[in-house]
Amino acid sequence: MNKTMKIMLLALPAFAVLVMFFLVPLGSVLVEPFLDKGEAFFGLWSDPLFLKGLKGSTLLALTAGVLSVLVGVPVALRLSVMKEKARLLAMFCISLPLTFSGLIVAYGFILCFGRAGFITLLLAEVGVSPDWVAGLVYSPVGLALAYCYYLIPRVVLLLLPALTNFDRSLLVAANSMGATRLRAFFDVLLPELMPTIGVSFCLVAAVAFGAYGTALALVGSQVNILPLLLYSSISDTGTNFSQAAAISLVLLGACSMIMGVAEVIAMRREQRLKRA
């Protein structure tokens, strides 16, 4: 046995665990819909509840993605020019939510934006109807706001290395050629950042598409998103396995596809860097 083979043996225990507790369970989920020749799977596409859930999840993923990037990019930009100490402190605060359970976020949001929440009552003072606020917060778009709480840190953490590695003299060079700062940002910095922004958008969109914890805690299983639909078809009495498997297939496919896109973007960026 050669040296490389011996070293690869070290990876074996971890591979075994991943196969047993990741690949095999997922494989069984993938096989399940075919056991009834895809009847449940094809049935889904005429089920209004499923279609509504698909629409809700898509809306949620897109909104969460766009919002996280819109907030994450400026925050990362600001952080990248801060002094080292201040940046570390800010980074510490920003990455706190990453380790929080989605449940903490959920209850925090109930306290802020619930029917009697702090912000809701504040807004009521200036004449915004509490019912409208609560209605918004408990919709897919509102859920996106709550999801952003722990999705924005992901965007910031992904962007920051790209930004600190960015050669700022390029911006100075653009300025010296007569470009305004805004112009230099759009012409020089943004194209450089675009792949990373694309990757982080995909990442947060996939998380938002597949998660159910925060949503369950915020609004129960009433809101129409796919992971909650899956949750109720597993946990409710009269478990409907074939429907659960069909929904799982859609969820898995969608999230893997989004992550696949992220991989392609990341790979193309790497190849471009290699050639340069």
């Binding site: 494989g27 998660a211 914890g213 899956l230 659960a244 498997a245 799982s248 969820l251 898995l252 893997s256």
Partner: peptide
């Protein structure tokens, strides 16, 4: 991220 937690749990 590619495998949503609910799906893995179902598996």
């Amino acid at each position: 991220i590619a495998a949503p937690p609910a799906v893995l749990a179902f598996g």
